[in-house]
């Protein structure tokens, strides 16, 4: 771990201007990922700007409908927030499927989307990694890639984005409010993260100095027909091999609108809006779900150890859609089985 200078910012404007001055600086909020990365020498920021005192820790309804999630609200407080639980239960489920209570108590809404991949090779200086050291190569491509991506990959990187929360935000169509050097702007959550392409060292489209100030949930709520299914190698405290966030709008047995986002399969939360059109107006049957899953995974590529994810993702999509359509809001694998 390098020595670093610690600066505490008083307000968002000061935070942004301070970071803009330090080309390799980093914001820190919960620190649940950054400090690990610093201890492992993956990140070596000479300046760490503490944003915890910023006034961004509120959850409040938006005047035009929707809900604003402050960037500094913890993941735990978000998941257990009454308005989130009532109106956006998918988000609560996704957050609570991730990490551990201790981590959720520290991690923030602004930090969660910016957590970095859990690729083994990214974390190990003994092995090449384009994300850690551009141009050195991707060790996972022909290595142990059980946890790696099957969609949207490139020859330069097959890392996944590890968040659960982001999968729900992607399904719900959230928007991200950003304060940057050149003022404020809002982008679709879909445009926050990148695919690896030939620049896998970039996880997202934020520019240096950009500060996520809040995340807006849209007016459109999915209160009932939702499911978050997370498949992993143990029952808790493991990253998703495949996760599926489903939000349905139903009229009886008919699907009016379907939102399906996948986690654990790509460099960003994966969603296929065109395929979702396929489900519109259809009855909620296994056949339709299977056809939809085949479409979503049609471009998937397996790299050996992770090839099973293609079939697993299809099955997970069918199960999550079935669960959501049946208005059973419990994720099957988390039901007590005794």
């Amino acid at each position: 771990m390098n020595s670093f200078s610690y600066i505490r910012a008083a307000d968002p404007a000061e935070a942004v201007s301070q970071l803009a001055q330090q080309s390799n600086g980093k914001f820190v909020a919960g620190g649940t990922n950054l400090f690990d990365l610093m201890k492992e020498n993956i990140e070596q920021p000479p300046y760490v700007i503490d944003i915890n005192r910023l006034d961004l820790a509120r959850i409040e309804p938006l005047p035009q409908g929707g809900l604003r999630l402050g960037a500094l609200v913890t993941n735990a407080d978000t998941a257990w927030n009454e308005l989130v639980e009532q109106n956006y239960p998918l988000l609560s489920k996704a957050i609570l499927a991730g990490a551990s209570p201790q981590l959720r108590n520290m991690a923030t809404n602004g930090g969660n989307p910016l957590q970095r991949t859990r690729c083994y090779y990214f974390y190990d200086h003994a092995t090449p990694c384009n994300k850690r050291e551009p141009g050195t190569g991707c060790s996972a491509l022909n290595g142990f890639n059980r946890i790696h991506a099957i969609l949207g990959t490139s020859e330069h990187c097959i890392a996944t984005h590890p968040s659960d929360m982001c999968v729900a935000l992607r399904a719900l169509g959230a928007r991200v409010n950003i304060k940057g050097v050149n003022g404020e702007r809002t982008i679709d959550f879909a445009d926050l993260h990148r695919l690896p392409g030939d620049a896998p060292h970039l996880d997202n489209n934020l520019e240096h100095g950009d500060l996520i100030t809040s995340i807006d949930l849209p007016e459109k709520q999915f209160k009932t027909n939702v499911a978050y299914l997370k498949l992993r190698d143990r029952q808790s405290y493991a990253f998703a091999l495949v996760s599926v966030a489903v939000a349905l709008e139903m009229n009886g047995d008919q699907i009016l609108e379907a939102r399906v986002a996948l986690g654990g399969v790509a460099h960003k939360p994966w969603r296929d809006e065109a395929a979702e059109e396929q489900l519109k107006g259809q009855p909620a049957t296994a056949d339709h779900f299977k056809a939809f899953a085949d479409t979503v995974l049609s471009g998937a590529i397996g790299y050996g150890h992770n090839t099973f994810k293609i079939e697993l993702a299809k099955r997970a999509i069918v199960r999550a859609l079935t669960t959501a359509a049946a208005q059973s809001v419990e994720e099957p694998s988390s039901q007590p089985l005794v």
């Binding site: 859990r118 083994y120 090779y121 974390y123 190990d124 003994a126 092995t127 060790s139 022909n142 290595g143 142990f144 946890i147 190698d233 143990r234 029952q235 808790s236 405290y237 493991a238 990253f239």
Partner: peptide, 22 residues
């Protein structure tokens, strides 16, 4: 990883041991 001859999941995040929920 036989290419590197190295244990790759050398952390408790990736070397899974049973948790309470298991």
């Amino acid at each position: 990883d036989n290419e590197f001859g190295r244990f790759m999941n050398h952390s408790l995040a990736e070397y899974h041991v049973a948790v309470n929920k298991d």
